[in-house]
């Protein structure tokens, strides 16, 4: 199974990039798609209808969506395998951007829009730092100079990252991404592990308990006068 993990902020063009990936997959590729979101997503239905591929979504509700994604990934690989698929594309919810959902054995694709501001690469450093490819979308909406300055901004965060600039609606420039996709080895021989430790902060606040004060909560907590978080619970 080839595993592609696509992450990035909302409205950055992740789905547009995924559409182009599916359209341009090498012959013999049988993709499946999983969208992870919080409360609303339609990408699974759209892609299933457009390409006739198995597609699924999972809502994380009160849980952190990246946390959710990590928990369901193993099941998702099995799901795709049971359907005799050989490419699994995961699309993240794209929320707090401090996590890196990429795993070993996957191609980590960070999708970031060129109109999101010159400093946005700095704000989502973890998302970019552990990715294999940064796909910069909507380059048709900015001047060439601005596109090149944005690229420079990404380079400052991750000097060696492979940057692919595209107008993902048209598919311009995506040949370099498709080359990476084609060359991506299968996942599964080795156990699939997270590349980085995401600051998930899963605790009773995350799942909806509203009382204030750490004494009312369980999980990873932090009292005012303590430098490091503590764990409270079983």
């Amino acid at each position: 199974m080839k595993l592609l993990i696509v992450a990035g902020p909302p409205s950055g063009g992740k789905t547009a990039v995924i559409r182009q990936i599916i359209r341009n997959l090498p012959e013999g590729a049988l993709p499946a798609f999983l969208k992870i979101d919080v409360v609303h997503a339609t990408e699974d239905e759209e892609l299933a209808e457009e390409f006739g591929i198995p597609a699924k979504k999972v809502y994380s509700g009160d849980l952190c969506p990246d946390h959710m994604g990590i928990l369901v990934l193993e099941d998702a690989l099995r799901w795709a395998e049971d359907l005799s698929r050989n490419v699994l594309i995961i699309e993240s919810a794209g929320l707090c951007l401090r996590c890196t959902p990429y795993t070993t054995g996957s191609l980590g694709i960070a999708v970031i829009s060129s109109i999101s501001g010159t400093n946005s690469p700095f704000k989502m450093a973890p998302l970019l730092a552990l990715a294999d490819v940064a796909v910069v979308t909507k380059t048709d909406l900015v001047s060439q100079a601005e596109k090149e300055v944005f690229r420079e901004s990404i380079r400052k965060v991750v000097p060696g990252i492979d940057i692919v600039e595209t107008n993902a609606i048209q598919g311009t420039g995506l040949r370099y991404l498709m080359r990476r996709v084609s060359g991506q080895p299968e996942a599964g021989a080795e156990p699939v592990m997270l590349r980085g430790s995401p600051p998930l902060g899963v605790c009773t606040i995350c799942i909806g308990k509203k009382e204030i004060g750490w004494k009312n909560h369980f999980g990873v907590l932090r009292p005012l006068d303590m430098q490091e978080p503590v764990y409270r619970g079983d």
Partner: peptide
Amino acid sequence: IALITQNTRCLADL
């Protein structure tokens, strides 16, 4: 190649 596009807005926060 240098391209001067039709853009009359720059979004860069600089």
